[in-house]
Design a protein around this nucleic acid. Structure first.
Lengths: 198, 198
DNA sequence: GCACAATGTGACCGCTTGTCACAAGGGCTC
DNA sequence: GAGCCCTTGTGACAAGCGGTCACATTGTGC
């Protein structure tokens, strides 16, 4: 359910960038493959955001969904790893679009430290703990080789991080109060292939 | 359901890399947060893969799941975009681990064409159609800026691609027989934050 | 004012998931 | 080989969620 709200957020953000200012449940349905009735039901459960005969105002709906997800403010995150993937993440506008601020980029490689990526400069890995504390960071993103993933996760968690996004292939052991989100494009691809072959 | 099978695949692949050769439903449950009974039920629906009192043999279970998902062979995919994200994808072992072969990397930028990434060399964008046909490609991965995403998607689909992985932020309009998988780390992050705050 | 478009909502069905309980089978120790 | 423990395989059942039809309601444009 909150998963669906996130999808709406994604579609609305894009629709807004394309210059639209309102959207119907049917249009959201076309992009998300979520039933239009379901969408209206989801939204109407929290209030009456739409206008009958017209649709939803994109700006106000974005605000409402952010309010529901309680993710309105700025959120600081830490990015570990300034390799190709780390650079790709840091230089993408994708986080900023949603109010997420990459507060610090760290790497263990002295050759990478000091280099600018995005509008940040790569910090030494040893400053991780201070960076997490000073910026009130509860989300860490791992863009490191799988060998170093567990160690980096441990260090993040030690410093106070509660949510880890793992872009390495490693399986992470973490305490029960820490959430790990792993994203594996290859597995998603196999999953997509399965449905294609059906 | 197939989604859960994919998760198992992910865990098993990693467990294997860590040198384990068997695993119990409880262990899979610890890593996936999927109920252990559910896991046994999922698997037993397709056959009796485990040994009571022992667990599952990782190699044979991997084979069985691949058989169920019908994703045993090699699959060729096309990667459009040789920027930082494209490079990160191309040089990652993640696809190869699952039998997915990046057959071709394309870019419109003449400066990038010819450069090696991974063990491939970047091809001119104009060769897309031939590459897709010659390699029997039905999956295309978009690692391009959002401005070019729709055009690239159109070209891929024209050439015969049926599954598009969209790593840009653009919303894609595609024919009904084409599946789009979008992955937006920022939205996933907001989703994770939502649960953390609960 | 009328037709049209789109939301908001009730009712209902079926599928999926979570859970308890327990029999059955394999391995280990003594 | 007997007994014990571990883990799978499976039945039964409850609960939740998603999909769908139907329809009243309300705003827009002609």
């Amino acid at each position: 359910m909150a998963a669906r709200l996130s999808r709406y957020l994604q579609v609305l953000t894009q629709a807004k960038k394309m210059g639209k200012d309102r959207i119907s449940s049917q249009e959201i349905s076309d992009y998300t493959n979520i039933n239009a009735t379901q969408i209206r039901r989801d939204l109407s459960g929290f209030g009456k955001f739409g206008k009958r005969g017209v649709g939803y105002n994109i700006d106000s709906l974005l605000g409402e969904i952010r309010k529901i997800l309680r993710t309105q403010g700025q959120h600081n995150i830490a990015l570990v790893g300034a390799g190709r993937l780390g650079q790709a993440i840091a230089s993408s506008p994708i986080f900023a679009e949603h109010g997420i601020n990459i507060a610090v980029v760290l790497d263990t490689d002295p050759d990478k430290v000091g280099h600018a990526i995005g509008n940040l400069s790569v910090q030494p890995y040893a400053t991780l703990r201070d960076a997490v504390r000073d910026n009130n960071i509860i989300v860490g993103v791992l863009a490191v080789p799988s060998e170093g993933a567990q160690q980096a996760a441990n260090d993040l968690i030690d410093a106070g991080v509660k949510i880890v996004f793992n872009y390495s292939t490693a399986l992470l052991d973490v305490p029960g109060d820490v959430a790990v989100h792993a994203s594996n494009p290859a597995v998603e691809l196999l999953y997509a292939l399965y449905f294609h072959l059906t």
